[in-house]
Amino acid sequence: MNPVAEVLSTVFGVVLVGAIAYEISQRRKRLRELYNVLDAEDKHVVADLDMMVANGQLAPYVIG
């Protein structure tokens, strides 16, 4: 096999694998943004909401 063609094939393969990995990473990032776990960053949000329920500021939604 021509050494130039071999190098080109290798480079093309590396670029292809890199592009797939990047695409997977981007889509996972989007999924994480969409379905985000409530973790340490959100614990104050959760605490506030729990307090609003406990204080009676929020009542359960009822189906009409």
Binding site: L34, Y35, N36, L38, D39, D42, V46, L49, D50
Partner: peptide, 22 residues
């Protein structure tokens, strides 16, 4: 926002509280 009530009841140390759909 889905607040997982089991999370706080079973493991007070855990930083998992549920999850939300943006």
């Amino acid at each position: 926002l889905a607040r997982d009530l089991y999370a706080s009841r079973t493991d007070a140390e855990s930083e998992y509280h549920g999850f939300h759909l943006n």
